[in-house]
């Protein structure tokens, strides 16, 4: 989604975003069903080439993009629930932000429809991805640890670690 930044608030917005903790401490970590997300500030538009008519932004833009599981409707709810106070901290710098309690309509209103979406793993949910990654790593570690063992031992070790996945 794309929203204009209130005049005079550009620096504060950037500082707020840059101050957000990274990685697992990020406020986005608390949003269910989210795979990737980013906030990008667009301060100006780059001019292409003549004879393009010049466009000028009157205000900077805050772009938020993300990839999520499930429907858009559910996602907006998860986003607001997961971000909590951060939603206000960030978007209050944008024009017309109504406060996070009433933000659902505002977010949907500022949404840009995706034209073409490319996904390497279109069907896997976030939990499925994380689960599969952990399982494969566990398997390869087990394979390394038991490679010189006897078949009975291998089977026992395998079932010990993976029996609950049935």
């Amino acid at each position: 989604m794309v929203a204009p930044v209130l005049e005079g608030q550009e620096q504060e917005l950037e500082d707020t975003l840059l101050a957000l903790p990274a990685g697992t401490q990020s406020p986005l970590e608390g949003v269910d069903g989210l795979h990737f997300a980013r906030w990008v500030i667009v301060p100006h538009l780059e001019y292409g080439a003549e004879p393009q008519p010049r466009d000028r932004l009157e205000r900077q833009l805050l772009v938020f993009t993300c990839t999520f599981d499930g429907t858009l409707d559910r996602h907006v709810g998860e986003l607001l629930a997961g971000l909590g106070q951060t939603a206000d901290d960030v978007w209050r710098h944008c024009d017309g932000w109504p406060g996070r309690a009433n933000a659902r309509a505002w977010l949907l209103d500022h949404r840009v429809r995706t034209g073409l979406f490319v996904a390497a793993y279109p069907k896997a949910t976030r939990e499925e991805v994380r689960g599969a990654l952990a399982a494969r790593e566990k398997l390869l570690n087990l394979a390394e640890d038991t490679q010189h063992g006897d078949p009975q031992g291998k089977r026992r070790d395998f079932l010990e670690r993976f029996a609950s996945s049935t």
């Binding site: 990274a22 990020s26 970590e29 795979h35 997300a37 793993y121 499925e128 991805v129 599969a132 990654l133």
Partner: peptide, 20 residues
């Protein structure tokens, strides 16, 4: 990006495809 986040930052696309 002023803030970029991933749910599984240490995994590459190939890691994930192999895992799935």
């Amino acid at each position: 990006a002023s803030h970029y986040w991933s749910a599984y930052p240490e995994a590459t696309t190939r890691d994930i495809l192999a895992a799935l």
